[in-house]
C-alpha cells in the first residue's frame, strides 16, 4: 500500500508566553490517503485551524512531524507548497480587485503560462457561477460568492491536496448546499481533500472518513456511518404531560428522560407512525408533542468523549 498523502504524527503546538502557554495541539495524529476526503470535526478551539496551518506550512509545530506528499512541512516547505492549496476561514482575496483580477494574479503567482491562465480563469469563473460578477469588485460580493471565489483561487493549479478550513461556517443553507456541490466537483476531479468543520452534517455529506478532534487530540476516527452507528441514529422525542406516563410506556429500546421519551428511528414515516401508535396503545394517553432529532455534534461528543462539546470561550468563562 502506498504511504498516505498527508501524515501528521504527534503534532504539538502552544501559543502564548513561555510562562503561561496555552496548549492548542496535544499530540494530533491524522492521515489522509490519496483521493480521500477527510473531515476534521470538532468545536471551536479544538485545534482544527492550527492543524491545517501546520500542514499547509504556515505554522511550525512545537513537536511532532508532518509529511505532505513525502515532504516534511517544516524542512521542505517549498516543495510542499507546490502540491497543496489552502482555503482558510478569512477570505484570501483582495476586495478591491474583481474576481477575474484576483484569479489572474493568483495564476501568475502560481507561475502558470499567461494564455493557460486566461482560459483557466474563464472556466473557473463559469464553473463557480461567478461569470456575471467576474468584473465586479469582490467587496460587493455576498459571503457565498466570496467563498466560491476563494475556493476557485485555490484550484488554478489543480493541487494534489486541498486544505479547506471550515468552508461553510457563516453561510446560509442555500449557499452551503452550493458550496457542497462545488466541493464534490473538486473531489471528483481527483483532488484529495482535508476539510475541517463544526458540522456533523457537513462531515457526513462530504467525507469518506471523519476524525473527531477535541481539546487538541484526535479522539475518534472512522467512516461517517460508523461514527453515527456508535452515536445512534435519529430519535423520535415524545413529550408527555407527566413522568409517570413516560414510565408506563413499555417500548423496547426507548430511553426515558423526565417527561421525554426517546425512541431511536430511521426517520421514515412508517416507523414514526408505528412508534406513535404503539405509544398511544400502551398508555392510553397521547403524548403532547413529538419531534424527530438527528444526532448532532453534541451527541457525538457526549457519546464518544463523555462530555459535551465545549468551545474555548466557554472553557475560559467557566
Amino acid at each position: 500500500m502506498s504511504p498516505p498523502l498527508v501524515r501528521a504524527t504527534g503534532l504539538r503546538k502552544s501559543y502564548g508566553s513561555a510562562r503561561r502557554p496555552v496548549r492548542v495541539l496535544d499530540g494530533v495524529d491524522v492521515t489522509l490517503a490519496e483521493g480521500e476526503v477527510l473531515a476534521l470535526l470538532g468545536p471551536n478551539g479544538a485545534g482544527k485551524t492550527t492543524t491545517v496551518r501546520i500542514l499547509s506550512t504556515l505554522l511550525r509545530p512545537d513537536g511532532g512531524t508532518a509529511m505532505v506528499a513525502g515532504y516534511d512541512v517544516v524542512h521542505d516547505a517549498a516543495r510542499v507548497r507546490q502540491v497543496i492549496s489552502l482555503t482558510g476561514q478569512s477570505a484570501a482575496v483582495d476586495e478591491k480587485q474583481s474576481a477575474r483580477e484576483n484569479l489572474t494574479m493568483m495564476g501568475r503567482l502560481a507561475h502558470l503560462p499567461r494564455r493557460f491562465v486566461r482560459g483557466r480563469v474563464d472556466d473557473l469563473l463559469h464553473a463557480f457561477d461567478l461569470g456575471d460578477a467576474a468584473d465586479r469588485r469582490v467587496g460587493t460580493y455576498s459571503g457565498g460568492m466570496r467563498r466560491r471565489l476563494d475556493l476557485a483561487a485555490g484550484l488554478l493549479t489543480r493541487p494534489r491536496v486541498m486544505f479547506l478550513d471550515e468552508p461553510t461556517t457563516g453561510l446560509d443553507p442555500r449557499s452551503r448546499q452550493t458550496m457542497w456541490e462545488v466541493v464534490r466537483e473538486v473531489v471528483a476531479d481527483g483532488t484529495s481533500l482535508f476539510l475541517t468543520t463544526q458540522y456533523l452534517e457537513e462531515a457526513d455529506q462530504l467525507a469518506d472518513r471523519v476524525a473527531l478532534i477535541d481539546d487538541g487530540r484526535v479522539v475518534a476516527e472512522g467512516a461517517p456511518v460508523e461514527l453515527k452507528r456508535r452515536v445512534g441514529d435519529a430519535a423520535v422525542e415524545l413529550t408527555f404531560t407527566s413522568a409517570e406516563d413516560v414510565a408506563r410506556v413499555g417500548l423496547v429500546g426507548a430511553t426515558p428522560d423526565g417527561r421525554v421519551l426517546r425512541v431511536p428511528t430511521d426517520g421514515s414515516v412508517a416507523h414514526v407512525r408505528d412508534v406513535l401508535a404503539a405509544v398511544a396503545a400502551a398508555v392510553g394517553v397521547e403524548p403532547e408533542r413529538w419531534e424527530v432529532r438527528a444526532p448532532t455534534l453534541d451527541d457525538v461528543f457526549l457519546t464518544l468523549t463523555g462530555h459535551a462539546a465545549r468551545t474555548r470561550d466557554e472553557e475560559a468563562a467557566a
Binding site: 496551518r53 499547509s56 506550512t57 504556515l58 517549498a78 507548497r81 507546490q82 497543496i84 492549496s85 489552502l86 482558510g88 478569512s90 484570501a92 493568483m106 503567482l109 502560481a110 507561475h111 483561487a153 485555490g154 486544505f163
Partner: peptide, 8 residues
C-alpha cells in the same frame, strides 16, 4: 496565508 502557502 494564501501567498505563504504558495510556492512564491
Amino acid at each position: 496565508d494564501r501567498f505563504r502557502s504558495m510556492p512564491i
